[in-house]
């Protein structure tokens, strides 16, 4: 699958949204490839939720346009979108089964279809005995499963999850991750929106970074990583390495127990990693146990990018990410 090259399920074109006292989105353009997992990343208050609320038609853009499979966004698309907001909940006094039925029918499913799918999903999550229980009698983890089912029950083409793993226990989080990957296999497109970039970066095919109402970077995650690689390598082994080579620069060096070491070395431009490896192997008393390229995390990329494009906001942005 080559997500980056397939046609976009959703496009945002120069979207602007302002509230009374602040601008939430200014000139944001995105294309979300069909069948991909898309990370909408940025610190709290960057404008992610504003963009999602425009896509889910809770509110509208002041300027710009959203297109769903090439069509201007309209109410008929609601049936194709599943949304799990950050502020999520359920009617406490309603039974699980009835609640799912209600939400599915509001999304356009017939009673028969909805009933069949509810059964299927409750079986998949092994919770079919809960159908007759009131939501208020469920634990938080159980409610999260019900919320997730409600999001995907109508078989949406586009699933939007806002801060999906906040408040999820690790077991549920993994269960949901597996389901998301399965839904992607079946052709759904997923948007993750989160400020905790590390929680989703290994799942995303494409990302967009948003800071202070503006998009600062977007594209396939591998391309972005390559672009931000610094030709830095991490080496672990035994001995006390002393690197005094003009083409290598030790950025960090740590001594560990039992004569072990860790070093992080940046190679000057055009220098190949093999040269560093050869140099270390040839150093006396050094035994290399692991050698790997240091891949920048999205967090690091984000902060670097903000530093380049909006240096005046770097401190606040870095704090917001913590």
């Amino acid at each position: 699958m080559q997500p980056s090259s397939s046609r976009p399920i959703l496009e945002a074109i120069d979207v602007r949204k302002a509230y009374a006292n602040h601008v939430a989105l200014s000139g944001v353009s995105l294309a979300i490839p069909e069948g991909s997992i898309f990370g909408l990343l940025g610190p709290n208050g960057a404008g992610k939720t504003s963009l999602i609320r425009i896509i889910t038609q809770i509110t509208g853009a002041d300027e710009g346009e959203i297109r769903f499979r090439g069509e201007r966004l309209n109410p008929s698309h609601i049936a194709h979108i599943g949304y799990l907001p950050e502020e999520r909940g359920l009617y406490k006094k309603m039974k699980v089964g009835e609640q799912l039925l209600y939400l599915a029918r509001l999304r356009g499913l017939s009673r028969e279809d909805a009933t069949a799918r509810i059964k299927q999903w409750l079986n998949r999550f092994e919770i079919k005995e809960w159908a007759g229980k009131n939501v208020e009698d469920l634990s938080k983890g159980m409610q999260q499963k019900v919320q997730f089912i409600a999001t995907v029950l109508h078989d949406p083409k586009l699933i939007i999850l806002d801060e999906p793993f906040s408040g999820f226990d690790p077991i549920n989080a993994n269960l949901i991750k597996d389901e998301i990957l399965r839904l992607k296999q079946e052709g759904a497109t997923i948007i993750f929106s989160t400020h905790r970039m590390e929680s989703v970066e290994e799942m995303c095919d494409n990302i967009a970074l948003i800071n202070r109402s503006r998009k600062v970077l977007d594209g396939p995650i591998e391309v972005i990583r390559d672009q931000f690689k610094t030709n830095t390598y991490e080496v672990e082994g035994v001995g006390k390495p002393i690197v005094t080579h003009p083409e290598f620069e030790v950025v960090e060096q740590k001594a560990r127990e039992n004569d072990h070491f860790y070093i992080r070395v940046q190679l000057h431009e055009g220098v190949r990693p093999n040269e560093l490896l050869r140099y270390l192997i040839n150093s006396p008393g050094i035994e290399v146990e692991s050698f790997r390229e240091k891949i920048p995390s999205i967090n690091e990329i984000f902060i670097r990018r903000v530093g380049e494009t909006m240096p005046e906001t770097l401190n606040q942005t870095a704090n917001a990410l913590l």
Partner: peptide
Amino acid sequence: GEEKSSRIMEVMLSSVK
């Protein structure tokens, strides 16, 4: 008020006007 405090509002609004 109940819809608001139980946080289901946003889910509802994404389905219904």
